[in-house]
């Protein structure tokens, strides 16, 4: 190792540094955001994105890709704003059913050896169609307890920050530190070895997809808690945001290399990128492109660091 900072450390520092860079730029452009209220507003919408990113991370961990998470979160949002509000029992049953459906997708993909991209792309239309059926026109109402939770105003630290830190830590403990999580990650690294050691890959895939479904449901509920009403197209952009968030946070598409803390940070960076561009008075049409540019810059840095790593 040469130099004062090892490339490995540098690489793990890249996600938080990117987040810090964006935050500093925002504070510089608009100093009033540097307050309890300002941060609350800035980071509010990052919470459902972070939840969806965690959902995507579980799928990426087993070398699959979920192109339906956006449609799925939209559907959950529609169900939350209608059934869960009007007839809670039906709502809870429907959401539980959705998680089971996700586990079923995992089983289907594993047993039939189907490409997850195709299956989930198809399912994205199913979720969207169901969302339109549940809520044909924008509207509905968030259940009061969700609304109350999402608008909590704890002393000192804004709620979105507490939620993000809590989410990152809980998922980190589960997937990175627990004995069970180790097996789940191993399935991404070398599935054959897991099978030879006597673990059921079917159960692992189903578990991972069910976890993704669970966090997708949380994401939809959190989203409705913030927006108070829903719409069938409310979260379609989450699909790409969630994938970008995982990658930005240091995860990789294959090999079970993931980082929940990084994923949450990546999701927040992307969410903040939108605000940053608004403060620059950029046309909103440019936002997607600019988010892409941020992604490219961070990934380019990561490649540079990896190169330095192989050289030492």
């Amino acid at each position: 190792m040469s130099g004062p900072v090892s490339p490995r450390l540098l690489r793990s520092l890249l996600p938080p540094l990117s987040l810090a860079a964006i935050l500093i730029a925002i504070f510089y452009l608009q100093p009033r955001t540097m307050s309890y209220f300002g941060l609350n507003l800035l980071l509010n919408l990052a919470v459902p994105i972070a939840l969806a990113t965690i959902a995507q991370m579980f799928i990426l961990c087993v070398n699959e890709l979920d192109l339906s998470i956006g449609g799925f979160v939209s559907l959950v949002a529609c169900i939350t704003a209608t059934w869960l509000h009007d007839t809670p029992l039906l709502g809870v049953a429907a959401l539980a059913g959705l998680i089971a459906a996700y586990a079923g997708l995992g089983a289907l993909i594993h047993l039939r050896n189907l490409p997850s991209i195709v299956v989930t792309l198809g399912m994205s239309f199913v979720w969207l169609g169901l969302a339109v059926l549940v809520l044909p026109t924008p509207g509905g109402k968030a259940p009061d307890y969700i609304r109350a939770l999402m608008t909590l105003k704890p002393a000192l630290v804004p709620f979105p920050i507490i939620a993000a830190v809590g989410l990152a830590l809980v998922v980190h403990l589960f997937i990175m530190r627990s004995a069970w999580g180790t097996v789940l990650r191993g399935a991404g690294g070398n599935p054959r070895s897991l099978e030879r050691a006597g673990w059921s890959l079917l159960r692992i895939k189903m578990t991972m997809f069910a976890l993704a479904g669970f966090f997708g449901v949380l994401s939809g509920m959190a989203l409705v808690g913030l927006t108070t009403s829903a719409d069938a197209n409310i979260a379609l952009r989450y699909t790409l945001l969630s994938i970008a968030g995982v990658i930005l946070g240091g995860g990789e598409f294959v090999g079970g290399r993931i980082s929940p803390i990084g994923a949450v940070i990546g999701a927040m960076t992307l969410a903040l990128a939108g605000s940053f561009l608004s403060f620059l008075r950029l046309n909103p049409d440019w936002q997607i492109g600019a988010q892409g540019a941020i992604l490219i810059i961070v990934l380019a840095l990561r490649v540079l660091i990896s190169r330095a790593e192989t050289r030492t």
Binding site: R185, G186, G188, G189, N190, S193, L194, A197, G255, G256
Partner: peptide
């Protein structure tokens, strides 16, 4: 048949439930 993304100790866990 090691999992390259896991540490040495974590790999031991895989074959020793």
């Amino acid at each position: 048949s090691l999992c390259p993304n896991l540490t040495v100790a974590e790999n031991a866990r895989i074959t020793h439930p």
